[in-house]
């Protein structure tokens, strides 16, 4: 995709802060002074120690939460509520158990004005992309975790959002399936060229998938550092430069993890 250097980023985050219960004594400052640009077509990973607010940042992008201060622009427009210009993938899949695989994927399309025939055709296209042919009429409870997450990815991509938001999507999968799903996601994104914001706490996963890794500090979450990953795709886990980047991310992260442990009094 051609990228105009001067064009504003797809997502612009300016002086963003999020506090929970700001009026009470138990105020939790989750995010402080976040400034971040997310470029179109790029895979951005948010990583940080647990409780650093990386999921909160994703929820703000999704419109599930409102910022306490600062602004958050998608395509130049402020994000105020959830909407179909974004797709969200949860760790627990959040599929609708009363709908089939096909029904789960067509739901978003039908809700956005697609005719039944068009929605079916589009859904089948995405079912093929995530390699679930033959499972169109299966109900989610009959599928394995990895298959459910494929459905969730297809469901979020099918209505063609501007950005795909993923909240530790492979965190509930066993390590074999997880590795496989990372490769599958890479393959799917090479096909669709979709902008992704991806939350994880796995450095291995981050470096394998990301164009850019944003390391957040321990609570309150601030941007600790940004590491660009300029490795060619498709990637393999065995690339030499891959290991160097992993070391760089780990060293940034370990400082924060130590801080977090001190805070917890350990």
């Amino acid at each position: 995709m051609l990228q105009n250097e001067n064009a504003p980023a797809l997502i612009q985050i300016r002086d963003l802060a999020k506090e929970f219960d700001p009026q009470s004594k138990n105020t939790v400052e989750a995010l402080r002074d976040i400034n971040l640009d997310i470029e179109e077509g790029k895979f951005t990973v948010l990583i940080g120690p647990s409780g650093c607010g990386k999921s909160t940042l994703l929820y703000l992008l999704a419109g599930f939460e409102k910022p306490t201060r600062g602004s958050l622009l998608l395509d130049g427009k402020p994000v105020e509520k959830p909407g179909p210009d974004r797709g969200f993938v949860f760790q627990d899949y959040a599929l609708f158990p009363w709908r089939t695989v096909l029904g789960n994927i067509t739901f978003g399309l039908r809700s956005n004005g697609w005719s039944k025939a068009d929605a079916d055709a589009k859904a089948r296209e995405y079912i093929a992309m995530v390699k679930l042919n033959g499972f169109e009429n299966a109900f989610p409870h009959t599928l394995s975790g990895g298959m459910k997450q494929r459905v969730a990815i297809a469901r979020a991509l099918a209505y063609n959002p501007r950005v795909l938001l993923m909240d530790e999507p492979f965190g509930a999968l066993d390590s074999q399936t997880r590795k496989h799903m990372q490769q599958e996601l890479q393959r799917i994104l090479m096909q669709t060229n979709k902008t992704v914001v991806f939350v994880t706490h796995s450095v291995i996963e981050a470096v394998f998938l990301a164009d850019r890794i944003v390391v957040l500090t321990a609570r309150p979450g601030m941007v600790k550092g940004i590491i660009d990953v300029n490795l060619p795709r498709p990637r393999e886990y065995t690339d030499d430069s891959y290991l160097d980047i992993r070391e760089a991310v780990l060293s940034l992260l370990s400082e924060e993890v130590e801080k977090e442990l001190e805070m917890d009094g350990m």
Binding site: L95, F107, G108, A156
Partner: peptide, 14 residues
């Protein structure tokens, strides 16, 4: 009803 199912639907504009 699981919260994430509701959020997933709302993100689709429902």
């Amino acid at each position: 009803v699981p919260r994430n199912q509701i959020l997933a639907a709302r993100e689709m504009g429902v």
